[in-house]
Design a protein around this nucleic acid. Structure first.
Lengths: 132, 132
DNA sequence: ATTGAAAATGCAAGTATTTGCATTAAAATA
DNA sequence: TATTTTAATGCAAATACTTGCATTTTCAAT
């Protein structure tokens, strides 16, 4: 089926450089262009687009899932759960793991936006000095 | 601080073999033992426990995050987004990726329950025959 | 161009989750 | 043991999100 106007606007909103937006943020920005849009329409469009592989859904520890357009260079993130810092990491080692798992388990990987939680270098130092 | 009684019951509920429960399921089962418990108490306890590293929080595509006790043998899953099948996978290749990323980015990995989405062997076949 | 079918949308109601505030319980201190 | 402090809890309200139903819009077929 043809892409609906709501979906086109969502893709446009997410096309900015590596934008990760929550459903709420997308709804707020969509309303600027389509004042009559209903929240349930936005949630349904996000669901359709995620299932169709147009956007990816990830938990980045912001209290709600975030959405991102699929299509740009694949990338992944390390997220610090203390300070919230987000680090973009290279795709190669992640892709190697995915290829290995696909062969090992006869699985077709769809995940393309990996988020891994931990603590960044700064927060590790702060925690160590706090213990001393 | 000492573990609260709600937290103890949650840990008990999650101690069954690789139980992955949503907040709602945990609340329903908790009420059987603590009829007066308030949903907000459960949500708060889950938040405390996740931040303390006692439980892990994951999106397994069930429409809500699922919780699991941390402490057993670390494992990860492949989840089919068509039929919902869940495959447990070995930790070794995932751990190798985590160790590499820790060194490369000076990051202390906390994530210990990786969920990767894709399509299982059966659903790949169904999709192919559907296309023919 | 018209008609019918399918999909998207809005509305209202419902459910899941979060938050502010006050109270209760547990822990620490004297 | 008593008191104070801290954390957990319940309640109600609020927010985020989902769902059922009817309507509108879009697409496909004629």
């Amino acid at each position: 089926m043809k892409t609906s106007s709501v979906e086109l606007i969502i893709l446009d909103l997410l096309s900015h450089e590596q934008a990760h937006l929550t459903a709420q943020e997308i709804y707020q920005q969509l309303k600027l262009r389509l004042p009559a849009v209903n929240p349930s329409t936005v949630y349904r469009a996000l669901e359709r687009m995620a299932h169709a592989g147009k956007i990816s859904v990830s938990d980045m520890g912001r209290g709600a899932m975030v959405y991102e357009a699929v299509g740009g260079e694949r990338h992944h993130h390390l997220v610090c759960q203390d300070c919230g810092a987000v680090m973009t990491i290279e795709d190669r080692p992640v892709n190697e793991l995915f290829r290995y798992l696909e062969g090992r388990y006869h699985f077709e990987m769809i995940t393309n936006h990996l988020i891994l939680f931990g603590r960044c270098q700064n927060c590790q130092k702060v925690s160590e000095s706090g213990r001393q």
